[in-house]
Design a binder for these strands. Structure first.
Lengths: 128, 128
DNA sequence: CTGACTGTAATAATAATAGTAGTACAGTTA
DNA sequence: TAACTGTACTACTATTATTATTACAGTCAG
């Protein structure tokens, strides 16, 4: 399920956060679904449980999951991920990246295509 | 000119790369303009010349500047920054970010506004 | 040519961070 | 009770970022 690049200069826990975020955004992992336990996933990926936990804490901080001690970690309903600061941060990131895109010659039409693609693949269920 | 956050977990040289890239993209630094020398900038920012050099090497690798040993570092003409791999990489980043944007409730119209803003500010000397 | 710039390279030492290993404690559930 | 779950903490190692220092070579104005 996860292909981690140990040799990458990007820390393992950051790679985990990115890939899990994708699974959540694309609703491969549905709201309130239970995530693999830190110990099970650590064993499966042959990495340390602490590293998984670090990724889970980061995902919780960003509003993508919530945890119930003793029970497990669960995908947060989308509403939890929506917070004004985060929205502004993503907008700013987006603006930067769009400027860069124009600079290196990506056209407005290219971007509109990507927009279509994103709109179709992103979780579109507007449930709770 | 640069406000560096030493306390940030983001390495100084990465912060430099980001900020300089912005200056180049927004044509505050024009093509073929000479960048500050590694020693002068290091003294100005009270950091080590090696750290500046690392940032310059990264910018050169990404095609945003070129260097002439003995003379200095210079802003690359835009054509140098355009390389197929980079274009694809930025497109992929953009797609990911757009998906995330939709997920957290940013609307299509919001994004179209950002697109306008980017189109106007990229390469026209506007500030961020 | 000299002197004062420029970039580049390399080494060594330090500081900060990522990752592992192990242990312990508490809540949940069958 | 037993076997899960999350969380917290300490200690150790490996990696990386950053600094400090030195050295060498190209450029250019005097």
């Amino acid at each position: 399920m996860f292909e981690l690049d140990i040799r990458s200069r990007q820390p393992i826990y950051e790679q985990l956060v990115e890939k899990m975020k994708e699974l959540i955004i694309h609703e491969v992992w549905k709201p309130n679904e239970q995530l693999p336990s830190v110990r099970v996933l650590a064993k499966e990926l042959t990495i340390n449980p602490n590293t998984i936990q670090k990724a889970y804490r980061e995902l919780e901080y960003q509003g993508y999951i919530y945890s119930i001690p003793g029970k497990g970690n669960f995908v947060a309903p989308q509403s939890k991920a929506i917070n004004h600061e985060k929205v502004e941060a993503v907008k700013q990131q987006l603006l930067k990246l769009l400027c860069e895109a124009f600079y290196i010659g990506i056209t407005r039409d290219d971007i509109l295509s990507l927009l279509e693609e994103a709109e179709q693949s992103a979780g579109r269920g507007d449930e709770t």
